[in-house]
Write a protein that binds this DNA or RNA. Sequence first.
DNA 1: AACTTGACGGTCA
DNA 2: ATGACCGCCAAGT
Length: 108
Amino acid sequence: MATNTGFFQKVYKVAHQIPYGRVTSYGAIAEYLGSKGSARMVGWAMNSSKNFPENLPAHRVVNRNGLLTGKRHFGGTEVMKQLLESEGLIIEDDRIVNFKEKFWEPKQ
DNA sequence: AACTTGACGGTCA
DNA sequence: ATGACCGCCAAGT
């Protein structure tokens, strides 16, 4: 499967552009792609990230609340948290406290 | 081929 | 402020 359906490739490209120590939301990526409502697809694409290079910083993508909703997909529950904290982010109760500060949008 | 689920988000009640 | 429903598109069953 070439996976050139479009969405996956776009999501992959955007996610890969997320700089170190920064995070974004599924909705932001979806909106950037032009499909605001397809935020779920962004998450789906991440799930399929197994087909993508390991360079895909899926741990830097959280929901619009800054909540680590996809932590359970990282093979553990604290893996994602540890990764983000390691990048200078403050995680409290699975939520990024300084999410607003560290937020990064693909438009940049 | 059809129905259900899924890393979300926004609006309505 | 909290809860429920709908929309979006693709994949799994």
